[in-house]
Design a protein around this nucleic acid. Structure first.
Lengths: 162, 162
DNA sequence: GTACGACCTGAAGTAAGGTTGAGGTCAACA
DNA sequence: TGTTGACCTCAACCTTACTTCAGGTCGTAC
């Protein structure tokens, strides 16, 4: 740690410091930046310098990921933040509330699946026609030729919707 | 290696027929075979011919996938089946029971996460030190079925710079 | 007897979320 | 002054679960 030693009053963080403090790899921070999720300014030597706000943003990213939100969507959410600054308490409330709903949908889905599984453990039928486990609420069920069963959990995909 | 009378009696299925009846793409069936999850014999023209049992196996694979079990693990489970034949009712009971437990763990995990999120929506702290959301003690939560679904292990902390 | 669809193989592409490596810069310390 | 360690960029690679494509064969209906 030679470069960023000293200077007790420095405000900005190097990428290594952010990595260490946030528990995220340097390569991941580069990656997030390439996707526009975080940003930095460069010092005279072209090295990234972050404000402390970035720690909050990284935290938010990791939490959203735990909830199951894909990075692209997290990026969109962050893009709605005014001034592209770190999320305020209000921002956080708005985003986390939305994500909590997503999480609950996901839980509901899994609970339904569990209950179906429970009901089907005894029968062992796995019937293509009758078993609810094999009929995940139609979606793209047996349609035309080459019919494919799309995963009902997938986010709506406009290009593959049948 | 005795065959079930009724299934042996029935005509064998081509890959296209299996695809149509199971709702799985032909390419996916090829893929499952390459991974050892299903098997087929070949006719004189080198085309795959399946017994009807394969439909049960494919059903089982799809259900397990919905639960979030990776194909490799499904393959291991299928490999434990005696004679590598289609799963009997008992086999199904055993496997589905195991997978139900996995599913419940996953649900528990998400419920905990939801509760934490609930408790943290108000505070907006996202504190690296204090916020439970940022201290996932135990992770394994990933779960979006479909495309991405893996969390081999978090970056081993070292953060590339010690 | 031929056209066309279904099938075959192996390689390459796709998506998400990164990691790893090569090749090079910068700045402090002995 | 040379070594070191953090940093830089860009490209290639990784995993899972498949799909798509190119180039060739099979089978059956007309």
């Amino acid at each position: 740690m030679k470069q960023h030693a000293n200077s007790a009053h420095r405000k900005e963080l190097s990428v290594g410091e952010v990595a260490h403090r946030s528990g995220v790899a340097v390569s991941a921070l580069h990656f997030y930046e390439s996707k526009g999720l975080i940003s930095s300014r460069r010092n005279t030597g072209n090295q990234r310098r972050y404000t402390r706000d970035v720690l909050r943003v990284v935290s938010l990213i990791k939490v959203a990921q735990r909830v199951g939100i894909p990075l692209a969507e997290i990026g969109e959410a962050l893009a709605t933040l005014p001034e592209r600054r770190a999320p305020s308490a209000d921002d956080w409330r708005r985003l986390s509330d939305h994500w909590k709903n997503r999480l609950e949908e996901r839980i509901d889905h899994l609970v339904k699946l569990r209950d179906q599984l429970d009901g089907c453990i005894g029968c062992g039928c796995l019937s293509l026609e009758a078993c609810p486990l094999r009929n995940p609420d139609d979606i793209a069920a047996q349609a035309g030729p080459g019919a494919r069963l799309f995963d009902p959990h997938k986010p709506p995909d406009t290009t593959t919707s049948a």
